[in-house]
């Protein structure tokens, strides 16, 4: 072994606090969130009032809960286009098993979880086994589940929705866990917001502090190299798909429990919103880079923008344009900050 060179190694050089902040994937998104919050707060008093905050946090939480596993999957190098429609599958499964087949509500929850894990496993297994892009595999799953959701629902219920879960024994406990509100500053905040914070923390911990997290970054960064050093890339990928499906189970059941009813078309189109939130939050489309907290901040930006447009009393016909422009701006700002950070490191 040669002696260590006398001059300082640039890899272990001391880095300033600002630079260390800047290279964090979620940093750009955080700034964006602050800017958007200030912007809409100036436009509307109600937006920054407790009632307003409760409202846009609610919208953000639905996106945010799913954005966390979707971001982890993206860091692992894959997409799940069926993530949105799986929300519907989970809720419909629980609803049909309970209100039509008479199964106990907790048993149906367990059964629908097993079903969702199986769907996630199929996604992951097909992707790892065939080596085809996850984009194509999950696109197939997306279309297939869309048909199953509608077909089964129509077959069983004669309509396109499953309702009346709120009449089932055991519903009230579930409602307390998944769909109740917590009073803060006299205003009702959805409990889903708490779940969102909890799952974001869990996801972030898993990514940054566990061996599984290391495997995710490695698998997404360079699958071949990872395989060569002994990372179980296939198992990691399958686990990530199953994680996404498990979260779809959680969100879908939150929805049917909260409203007592769920529609066959629920979640279609949402899969892209989850990916958008993850990308705003600093995930790279190529994998290997990103953060769970970032994805949640991305969801927060989306929630604030969506509701902010209404609070600002803008014409809602243009709504999608505003959202699109906001998202592009956020991503560009993100890109700029990251490039600046990477240059300043040299």
């Amino acid at each position: 072994m040669t002696a260590t060179a006398a001059r300082a190694d640039e890899r272990i050089a001391d880095v300033g606090v600002l630079r260390r902040l800047l290279v964090k994937p979620e940093f750009g998104a955080l700034i964006g969130a602050v800017v958007i919050f200030v912007f809409f707060s100036i436009q509307s008093d109600v937006f920054r009032s407790p009632a307003g905050v409760a409202n846009w946090l609610d919208g953000a939480s639905t996106v945010g809960l799913m954005a966390v596993p979707v971001a982890m999957l993206m860091i692992g190098g894959h997409f799940d286009l069926s993530a949105g429609v799986q929300i519907g599958t989970a809720g419909l499964a629980t609803g049909i098993m309970t209100t039509y087949w008479g199964l106990n509500v907790y048993a149906s929850l367990v059964a629908s979880l097993l079903l969702m894990l199986a769907i996630g496993f199929v996604n992951g297994y097909l992707v790892t086994r065939t080596g085809l892009p996850s984009f194509i595999i999950t696109l197939g799953m997306f279309l297939g589940l869309q048909g199953i959701n509608l077909g089964v629902t129509k077959q069983v219920t004669n309509t396109v929705q499953v309702s009346n879960l709120d009449l089932v024994p055991g519903y009230h406990l579930l409602k307390n866990i998944l769909g109740s509100t917590v009073s803060v500053a006299g205003k009702p905040f959805q409990i889903a917001i708490l779940w969102w914070v909890l799952f974001t923390a869990l996801g972030s911990w898993a990514l940054l502090k566990t061996r599984f997290g290391n495997w995710i970054f490695a698998t997404g960064g360079d699958p071949n190299a990872s395989k060569n050093v002994g990372v179980p890339t296939n198992r990691t990928t399958i686990a990530l798909f199953m994680l996404t499906s498990a979260m779809a189970w959680f969100v879908g059941n939150t929805q049917i429990v909260r409203f007592g009813t769920i529609q066959a078309q629920v979640g279609i189109g949402q899969e892209l919103i989850f990916i958008v939130a993850a990308v705003i939050g600093g995930c790279l489309l190529t994998g290997g880079y990103g953060s769970a907290i970032g994805a949640s901040v991305g969801a927060l930006i989306f929630g604030m923008t969506q509701q902010g447009i209404v609070y600002a009393n803008w014409n809602s016909d243009w709504f999608k344009l505003f959202v699109g422009a906001m998202l592009l701006l956020a991503v560009l700002a993100n890109q700029f900050v990251r490039r600046f950070a990477e240059q300043s490191r040299r």
Binding site: T98, T99, Y100, W101, L103, N104, T157, N164, V168
Partner: peptide, 8 residues
């Protein structure tokens, strides 16, 4: 349990 199948 038939109590559950409120939608039958």
């Amino acid at each position: 349990s038939s109590a559950n199948s409120v939608n039958r």
